[in-house]
């Protein structure tokens, strides 16, 4: 059974026809062509599909497309301003916080959500905020360094307590 989903994606009103079984992830990738949001596990463990729904980070694979009707969604495509990267994106590049890149869109959204509600997080708070975003390449330290550099305007020691 298909129905029309109307929501605001990256600040623009969008309509899309979705099946009742579709997830928000399928709505974004397959119906709207916004393929920056990645599918990793498809069951909420990896966080690769993290988007903001009404400002909160959610796994798009755990939201039905119907639930997004009337919601404000931010995807990785809505993070840069034209050709100007978001500071989190620039910092990830500068710190080598991305390797294969598959987890990066989700990491960026989790980091942006963190900094929106807590502009100066501690290294522990940064690690907690991205705990739902698995990265199999970097070992996380460079990602945490990048987010900390945005938050504090400088490079700080982010090593976890032993």
């Amino acid at each position: 059974m298909k129905s029309v989903i109307t929501c605001e994606i990256n600040g623009e009103p969008r309509d899309a026809l979705a099946d009742g079984r579709d997830t928000l992830l399928e709505l974004l990738r397959d119906r709207l062509g916004l393929t920056g949001t990645k599918e990793g596990c498809g069951n909420g463990n990896c966080g690769a599909c993290t988007v903001l729904m009404n400002g909160e980070p959610v796994c798009a694979c755990l939201v039905l497309a119907g639930e997004a009707h009337g919601a404000k969604i931010t995807t990785i495509e809505g993070i840069a301003r034209g050709n100007t990267l978001h500071p989190v994106q620039s910092a990830l590049i500068a710190h080598g916080g991305t390797q294969c890149g598959f987890c990066t869109p989700g990491i960026v959204l989790s980091a942006v959500a963190l900094l929106d509600r807590n502009p100066h997080p501690s290294p522990h708070e940064i690690r907690h905020a991205i705990a739902g975003n698995l990265c199999r390449c970097t070992g996380y330290d460079k990602i945490v360094e990048a987010i900390a550099a945005v938050a504090h305007g400088t490079n700080i020691d982010v090593k976890p307590a032993p």
């Binding site: 909420g44 909160e56 980070p57 796994c59 755990l62 989790s110 905020a129 739902g132 975003n133």
Partner: peptide, 9 residues
């Protein structure tokens, strides 16, 4: 329970 993404739901 899960991550912040999970706890948002």
């Amino acid at each position: 329970i899960g991550s912040l993404q999970i706890q948002a739901r």
